[in-house]
Amino acid sequence: MIGDVTIAVVHVVIMAAGAPLLVGALRTVKARLVGRRGPVPWQPYRDLRKLFAKTPVVSTTTSWLFRATPYVLMSTMITAALAAPVLSSRPPLAFAGIILLMYLLLVGTFFLALAGLDAGSAFGGMGSSRGVAVAALAEPTVMLAVLALSLRANTTNLGGVVEGLAHEPLLAANPVHLLAFAAFFIVMLAETGRLPVDNPATHLELTMIHEAMVLEYSGRHLALVEWASSMKLLLFLTLLANLFFPWGVPAVLGPSALLLGALVLAAKLAVLALAVALLETAMAKLRLFRVPELLAGSFALALLSVTAVFLQR
């Protein structure tokens, strides 16, 4: 019982506290790659602290949903943190599988898209429309990519997948694994709103997807929404790290295991974040109506991965 509460607290703290650092580090690396000094990696913490101290402005055309959405987003992210195998392969919500996790994230998308429409501006509507389109098209790929892993581990429980795959040292060379990793990586870029699908740093409303939905938010509401979206990025990278390269995710948490797990996770996240930063710097944003082609390509990879599972039996 005490162990469960500890793990829950640790998961939430790591996800909530680590997410802004991840986003800040990404920004710093991207800045260095284009020849700028860039902000310090802990800049998002300063931004959040400043935002919490501001008085939010709420539009007169909105309903209760607009003010509720930031809190709902944070709640779903914290619940997702409790459900994902972040540091331990027995997370507090031990029953969670990829389906529950994806639908929890869809709760957040649902509320945020509605909040974008609530303000009654064309920007918000456009952001909502594009945002749900990308989310809908990314769903099949996510399901199939993790399905490929679940079939080999014979369980859809995420912790079970981690434990099942941790016993196979040569899995990185398996085509199933590589194809599923590639598919999930592409879909991660789409779901978290990174280049080449969506530019998180753009100022042109016509090029925005996620940003357009949050144009009306200010103060603590904006802080919560930005925080939740950085937690989403951390969640996806953690899933990529722990589901596909599951070494260093202990089942039982003692203090030394916790420390080792945290270090290994940090190392894996650093590699993945560097890959994301390199990709974002090197590639330009895709035209909006080319994004479905990219997602269809990732779906084809995921389908191949699942077919490979069946052919290998």
Partner: peptide, 14 residues
């Protein structure tokens, strides 16, 4: 590079 000082341009006055 004004970003190194924590300054950042944003799109919306909100």
């Amino acid at each position: 590079d004004l970003e190194r000082f924590g300054l950042h341009f944003v799109a919306s006055p909100r």
